[in-house]
């Protein structure tokens, strides 16, 4: 069964029609890349999946989005519960101005979990999964803001993993990082795929080619092409996709 399924989704900001009739299905334990020029709606579509657009003034949505067969915009769904299931990593590393430890356990603390043993274990397993444990295990009480950009981003991933989501949304997670940090994040995405469904927005074609199983190409609010990454990159069906991937516009 599909992990995520979107049917005829339309999004408006006021009178601005930003997502135009997008339908797509995402398989579990895959990495899907959303590509397309700036302002094409890929980030907006990503943020529909954990309802982060809800706060934006003038936001209006039509069509349905299902996660594990459940309509995530149903009135009975608590948006906080949804976000525990669908985690998100942002473009710019945004650790809280707290210690490394407190960053990782924040998601648990707000659920009321106080058991020190549970928290300690979560910190260790989450940081290990995010490939950060070895670098920070002796300085968990240090401020997260003292870490490098790449470490901060992996901390944000660890923080997301700590609440045990099944889907992780990544909005250009490496665009603010140097090449070495980027490579680490990409490796990490590859490892995480075993246990999580990952959707990544990226401007970097090579990155999409390296990390993703499937690729969706958005253009001015429309989903132009969606297929296996290999097919989209080597043998795109649409000319628009071909032009974008080869760098003729964008």
């Amino acid at each position: 069964m599909e992990k995520i399924s979107a049917n005829n989704v339309q999004v408006y900001y006021g009178s601005n029609h930003v997502i135009k009739d997008v339908s797509l299905n995402i398989e579990p334990n895959t990495v899907t890349a959303f590509i397309g020029p700036s302002g094409c709606g890929k980030s907006t579509f990503l943020r529909l999946l954990n309802r982060m657009n809800d706060y934006i003034e003038g936001f209006r949505k039509e069509g349905d989005i299902f996660l594990d067969g459940k309509n995530i915009y149903d009135k009975k769904i608590r948006v906080e519960e949804l976000r525990k299931e669908v985690g998100m990593v942002f473009q710019k590393p945004n650790p809280f101005p707290k210690t490394i430890y407190e960053n990782v356990v924040y998601g648990l603390r707000i659920q009321g979990i106080k058991n020190k043993k549970v928290l300690d274990e979560t910190v260790e397993t989450s940081l290990k999964k995010a490939a950060l444990w070895e670098e920070v295990k002796d300085q968990l009480t240090k401020s997260a803001l003292a870490l490098s950009g790449g470490q901060q981003q992996r901390l944000c991933i660890a923080r997301t993993l700590a609440v045990q989501p099944s889907v992780i949304l990544m909005d250009e997670p490496a665009s603010a990082l140097d090449p070495i940090s980027t490579a680490k994040i990409e490796e990490l995405i590859y490892d995480l795929k075993k246990n999580y469904t990952i959707i990544i927005v990226t401007h970097n074609m090579q990155q999409a080619g390296r990390v993703s199983d499937k690729t969706a190409f958005f253009y001015i609010g429309e989903l132009i092409e969606y297929g296996s990454t290999k097919q989209v990159f080597t043998n795109p069906e649409k000319e628009l996709t071909q032009n974008y991937i080869t760098g003729r516009f964008g």
Binding site: N50, M52, Y55, E80, E81, R83, K84, G87, M88, F90, K92, N94, P95, F96, P97, Y106, G107, R109, I110, Q111, C156, R159, T160, V163
Partner: peptide
């Protein structure tokens, strides 16, 4: 970005205000 990070981890508005 701090508000968004908190919301994305499942925090309510009040928790976000209180803790972040």
């Amino acid at each position: 970005t701090i508000r968004e990070a908190s919301y994305a981890l499942g925090a309510t508005k009040w928790q976000t205000i209180l803790y972040q």
